[in-house]
Amino acid sequence: MDELVAFLGENGFTTDQQEAIGRQFHRRELKKGDLFLQEGQISQQLGFVEKGLFHYFCNRNGDEITSYTAGPGDFLVSLSSFLRQRPARETIRALTDSVVWAIHKRGFDQLRRDAPPFEAFYVGVLEEQIVCIEDSRFNLLTLTAEERYQKLLEEEPNLLQEVPLQYLASILGVTPRHLSRIRGHIR
């Protein structure tokens, strides 16, 4: 919980607010391969990753299509499912043994109602997610696969060491074979 409390402190919450918010979260340990959320389920939890790596994916015609990865300091949630209480369109799976601090939807909604600083924080997190989604969409539409890989090298080089090739390829919108060619060309 230390990482979650530190994260809250870095985002302007007082010690009392950090403790009150922290009490709403519970620790979840996930082993490599465990699911945080299954496609089709309604998301009832939002998680803060203390340790580990996750990927978001959907199954289409027997293929896993990875859309996103999350690591320490990131939040885990299928936003549309969590906010609208609709079936999730993606699965969130642990790629490594992981520790997540999760809050149930009821506790989350209560914090939003009862703690104005939490509501403001929440809006900031949503804005950041919207910008990330927009950037990702823009990059997928306007950059070549090589340019997207180069951007990944520059902005998130740790992913190249931590995320299996087939998931990186999916995020970049190419096949693993094409990604191998790109990597060989750029080196």
Rank of each mutant, 00 (worst) to 15 (best):
R84V: 05
F7Q: 10
G52W: 06
Q17D: 14
F36D: 02
L37N: 09
G71K: 06
Q18F: 10
R89H: 10
I65M: 14
G73Y: 00
F54K: 12
N59W: 09
A20Q: 13
F82A: 14
V99Q: 09
G47L: 01
D16Y: 00
W101G: 11
F82N: 09
E90F: 03
R27D: 14
A20F: 07
S43D: 11
E50Q: 12
F54I: 07
R23I: 04
P87L: 09
A102R: 14
L83R: 03
Q24L: 02
L83I: 12
C58R: 12
G62M: 02
D63G: 02
L95I: 01
G73I: 01
G22F: 00
S78P: 03
R23Q: 07
L83A: 08
G9N: 08
G71N: 03
L46D: 09
L95A: 13
E39L: 04
S67Q: 02
W101M: 09
R84S: 08
S67G: 13
Q17Y: 05
A88G: 05
S80W: 09
N61C: 14
R89W: 10
T96E: 13
R23N: 09
G73W: 00
N11K: 12
D34F: 07
S43M: 06
G22Q: 04
L53E: 07
E90S: 13
F25N: 05
T66L: 04
D63C: 06
V99D: 01
G40P: 13
L79Y: 06
S98G: 01
S81L: 03
S67E: 05
A20G: 04
P72R: 04
L35V: 13
I92V: 14
A20I: 14
L83C: 02
R60G: 04
E50C: 12
Q24R: 11
T14L: 07
E64N: 12
L95V: 07
Y68V: 00
T91L: 02
L83D: 10
K31D: 10
N59C: 10
F25T: 10
L95N: 02
L83K: 06
G71C: 01
T66P: 15
S67V: 05
N59V: 15
R86Q: 12
F36M: 04
T66I: 07
D16E: 07
G22M: 01
E10M: 15
S43L: 11
P87M: 13
F82D: 11
N11I: 08
T69E: 03
V100A: 15
E10D: 07
R23M: 15
I21P: 11
G52E: 09
D16N: 04
S80M: 13
K51L: 03
F57H: 09
R89P: 00
R89E: 06
R28C: 12
G12T: 07
F57G: 11
Q45P: 04
R84P: 00
G62L: 06
R28L: 08
K51F: 01
A6F: 08
Q38L: 14
Y68I: 00
C58W: 12
Q44E: 15
D63W: 08
Q17H: 07
A70P: 03
S98E: 01
L76F: 07
S81I: 06
